[in-house]
């Protein structure tokens, strides 16, 4: 790996000033499962690597009355080890427990997954359907960006030089709601999504009709994709297979996949339909159990 300096800030203000130093060539290190591999391959360069794991705000994982405060550097393991969080946000656990292996999940963070901005990122669609909002800190203060607007292309995001992701806030899940994320991979583990789908649903009091729904897709566009129209069309519709199929068709209509070594355009569009229907069914099941 090419030489770099390493710093371990212990406060957010120190982290922000380090990220702004070195003419914008500083990079944040969370779990390193993307960054270190890319740096070794020469695909990312940094003069300074800033470790996120000693900044309290970046490592917070707390359930409050208003929802979940998910520090950007929180590892997948900390999520699946935290029973109340798993109970409150099972779809987040769906995502956190399929990234790589146990070894990878011990280090890989949700914020790193989002910042790395891979179209196939497994956490991002879940954050989107839960209406997550990013807190970003930088030399000019802090700002908020909805998760669905954070990624701008493969490997790129809205962070300006010197800015860092502090946390992602998920509002508390409303009553009668449920969510699920799943993906398709040829191997059961240690594989990257050919396509993925996350669904969040809120049912009405009778639990027979959709009150609201959000759907987001992985690996079928240059960024993780918020399929807004597909979720919106479910509002007021009865919970049945016909409604679910309509939403799945609408999700297929917005998917813009490419053909690559993992799959073809046709296969991926087909998968979006199958996975979205499954994600919705499971989300409904969870909403009815809740």
């Amino acid at each position: 790996m090419i030489d770099f300096d390493y710093a371990v800030p212990t406060s957010l203000s120190e982290a922000v000033s380090l990220m702004g130093s070195n003419g914008g060539s500083a990079r944040m290190l969370a779990g390193g499962t993307d960054l270190l591999i890319m740096m070794r391959a020469g695909r990312r360069l940094a003069k300074l690597v800033v470790d996120a794991k000693s900044v309290p705000e970046l490592n917070e994982l707390s359930l409050t009355d208003s929802g979940l405060n998910l520090g950007a550097a929180t590892s997948c393991k900390r999520i699946w080890d935290d029973e109340p969080v798993v109970q409150a946000y099972p779809a987040l656990n769906d995502s956190a427990s399929i990234i790589g292996s146990v070894q990878i999940q011990g280090r890989a963070s949700v914020g790193g997954n989002l910042c790395n901005a891979a179209p196939s990122a497994d956490c991002t669609p879940t954050l989107i359907v839960h209406s997550g909002v990013c807190t970003i800190a930088g030399p000019n203060g802090t700002r908020q960006v909805p998760v669905e607007e954070f990624c701008t292309g493969p490997g790129t995001n809205v962070l300006q030089p010197g800015e860092l992701l502090v946390n992602i806030k998920l509002p508390s899940a409303p009553t009668n709601s449920g969510a699920h994320y799943l993906r398709f991979t040829p191997r059961n583990e240690m594989d990257i999504a050919v396509a993925g789908s996350a669904a969040f649903v809120q049912l009405d009091e009778s639990k027979q009709n959709f009150a609201s729904a959000r759907i987001s897709l992985a690996a079928v566009a240059p960024t993780p994709l918020f399929a807004k129209a597909a979720g919106d069309l479910l509002v007021g519709k009865p919970v049945n297979e016909e409604s679910i199929q309509q939403a799945a068709e609408a999700a297929k209509a917005v998917a813009k996949p490419i053909t690559d070594m993992r799959g073809t355009v046709d296969q991926r569009i087909h998968l979006v339909g199958v996975l979205t229907a499954r994600a919705l069914r499971k989300a409904v099941e969870r909403a009815r159990e809740a």
Binding site: Y6, V8, L29, G31, G32, T33, L36, I37, V49, D51, K53, K77, V102, Q103, I104, G106, R107
Partner: peptide, 15 residues
Amino acid sequence: GVLVDSCCVLGVEAQ
């Protein structure tokens, strides 16, 4: 206490 791939960790992180 956490199982890791040591190739994906920096030596300085062991501090």
